[in-house]
Amino acid sequence: MVPLDNYLILSGILFTIGVIGVLVRRNVIVIFMSIELMLNAVNLTFIAFSRYLNSIDGQIFVLMVMVVAAAEVAVGLALIIAVFRIKKTVNVDEINILKW
């Protein structure tokens, strides 16, 4: 059986990649994908703990996260398309209308 540590390290790496992707990439779509990566890193942790603690709670939570993520993708992509229609770009540096 693969030890718990390996799962957690993999999950940490995936999460960090997601965070760095969110922080450094400028394309909204890529940022969006990075967020999904972070969510899935968390899902992996849930599954691993579920298996090792012999508890079904983690798996239920993962299903929950996936449902929310699916809904979030739908809304998020719709927003991106709406912004794209106005600004003709998906570069976040140019989408800075939240500024003072």
Binding site: V19, V22, L23, V24, I31, V92, D93, I95, N96, I97, L98, K99, W100
Partner: peptide, 14 residues
């Protein structure tokens, strides 16, 4: 502080 760049907000959050 309010730069308008989402990523900076995200950075501060993280």
């Amino acid at each position: 502080l309010q730069t308008g760049y989402i990523q900076e907000y995200a950075l501060s959050l993280i």
